[in-house]
Design a binder for these strands. Structure first.
Lengths: 361, 361
DNA sequence: CTGAAAGCGCTAACAC
DNA sequence: GTGTTAGCGCTTTCAG
């Protein structure tokens, strides 16, 4: 058969096939297949012999072939906006470790826009016979899309938000806001500003909205009503944070404390304070979210979340859910999908201080 | 579109196959295959008809099947230590964008240790019939491994270092050291310290060694000899940087300036300075490497490199090299592989200042 | 517990 | 230009 591939000098070394192993072990290919995959119904001695021959020949099942034949890809794909961001790369790192450990390949695809996302979630190319599961990181999958994905037989779990009937891991974003509010109130602040998203992003879960509400409610619980004029868009990056803080400071009645929805924006805010000769924690209190490594450097008070763990947990949930519905389990209509709400913690550093010591600027 | 999938509740909708399209268009499967892939030798009208039928049926070639049949995976895998690091996630992001754009899937696999790496580069599983190309990010592939990879027909290109005969993108790490030396010398510093790797990492290219040599040579060019006692290991992370700076400051004759081989370590160094009531740029000059987003926040003088671009460029090189040897080009034995040395720039901020104003501490 | 045989859906020669 | 026909290497009924 396809034995001597005679051609060019640089000819590729030929792989051992399942047949080679079969004849070497004196069994059929079916048995080899079973033995190699540790399926039942193979005599222990046979299995051993097969495995030995396989190792001897350096045999490994051709992934392309098994995928094709079995219809399973042993691949999960993680869909993520902006791979280079701190949050995302940490989530992906956590997920990758778990998937690799479980013998799954991880494909990563970046989505820059809602249309990218739609394309990916709809095109069969990206789904059918291509991946066994989808890990959606901070991207909202519409119910229709989720249904279509499920119908195509690919599992779905998300981190950062939730899709009805699918596993997810997320944090309580309102709690995040409330934690910030409580802390600031404790320090005596009554006029607090907020740095959030620039505008609604149709692609991701409403994290900004929830954190916003949390802060507002948290303040309200102490009789403080949030002044909408003190909400500035920071685009979740350093520059945006800086601009937002500038806007806040330029307000005729500036806040004495600011809640930044991410540490990165808070860093930008700190730059702006520096620029004006102000100091976080003394002139203006500032609390971020994430507990980014760098927050320690500038001693930023922040609300910690274990991002890499979220990714790892989500990957486990995804893998579990795939194990569950072995392709044919129309029993429970994905009733109560495992879904974890991870904890968050306020970490107090020097960027927040008691109100009243505020310098007049 | 993919309209009426009649049947059972949970049964997966059946995909249209190439045969469906063939009969719908009244041509053979071969023609459909050719038409769909824009191969030559298909009448323009025929192609159109086929494409129309395909869209009508919502047909897309089953990736698993084509991969199997064609022996090409249309997948590149990027091998990277520590996906969550700033440097790595940026490289991967740059590469991912290019690969996706080119229609390649990107598989990412993290390697935590040299043994992981070896396993991945040797196991056939990870290479043969699994990926068309490997992008090795800051991992050194031994000549033997490179040869074996090539023999298996998978392309290889690396970022951060070079493998003879394979494309690569990297920076001139000695130049980085020299740039730092020149700048510090210009400011009048004669006693400069250095924060580098903790110890030799057998997995990655000798970036620390090259930067070290560059600094030493740069200083020497101005008649300053580097004191080996002023070399501290910082492990390329914030904590390590802090410890290293502490060690340097505790030296009986501390440096007036410090070259940190990465911004992240420099951030740690800044923490240590803060802790001791010292300030970068006034008490001790500090220059980092990377131009990490946050270096602006702490006004760190640094040596910029366009990390995401490196990833993108490397991906292009990889893709090009795959196009070149269409599986049978034993012509040039990979004589002179395209290999780019990206530029770096010194960015002066406030963390460096003229020597002599140094406070006695 | 094991073997024989029928594909999985597509690509690639090779004819026409 | 287009059709025919082998497989790609493995998994998986179905018999035994």
């Amino acid at each position: 058969m396809a034995a001597s591939n005679s051609h060019s000098n640089s000819a590729r070394a030929k792989r051992a096939t399942i047949e080679d192993v079969a004849s070497a072990a004196g069994v059929s290919v079916a048995t080899v297949s079973r033995a190699m995959r540790s399926l039942p119904n193979v005599a222990i001695s046979t299995r051993q012999r097969v495995v030995d021959c396989a190792t001897a020949l350096g045999y490994t099942a051709d992934p392309a072939a098994s995928r094709f034949a079995a219809g399973q890809t042993k691949t999960i794909t993680v869909v993520v906006p902006n791979l280079s961001g701190w949050y995302f790369s940490n989530v992906v790192a956590g997920a990758e470790a778990v998937c690799t450990e479980a013998g799954y390949d991880v494909l990563v695809v970046g989505v820059g826009s809602r249309s990218d996302l739609t394309r990916i979630l709809c095109e069969q190319y990206h789904l059918e016979r291509r991946t066994d599961g989808l890990l959606a990181v901070e991207v909202v999958v519409s119910p229709d899309e989720a249904a279509s994905i499920a119908e195509r037989g690919v599992a779905l779990t998300s981190v950062g938000g939730q899709n009805a009937g699918h596993p997810s891991v997320r944090i309580d974003n309102q709690l995040v806001g409330r934690l910030a509010a409580d802390h600031l109130i404790d320090l005596g602040h009554r006029r607090v500003g907020m740095i959030g998203a620039q505008k609604d992003n149709p692609m991701s879960f409403d994290v900004p909205g929830l954190r916003h509400d949390g802060l507002v409610q948290g303040l309200a619980a102490h009789g403080v009503i949030f002044d909408d004029e003190l909400l500035a868009g920071g685009n979740f990056d350093v520059d945006g944070g800086q601009e937002a803080m500038a806007a806040l400071l330029d307000h005729r009645d500036p806040p004495t404390a600011v809640f930044s929805m991410s540490d990165e924006m808070a860093f930008g805010a700190i730059m702006e304070l520096d620029k004006r000769g102000l100091r976080a924690g003394r002139d203006v209190s500032l609390v971020g979210v994430d507990n980014h490594e760098f927050s320690r450097v500038v001693s930023l008070t922040t609300i910690h979340q274990s991002v890499a763990d979220h990714g790892a947990t989500a990957a486990r949930l995804l893998l579990d859910s795939m194990r569950a519905d072995g392709d044919t389990t129309p029993l429970a209509p994905a009733s109560d999908a495992a879904s974890v709400v991870a904890g968050v913690d306020l970490i107090v550093r020097d960027s927040t201080g008691v109100a009243g010591t505020v310098a007049t600027h």
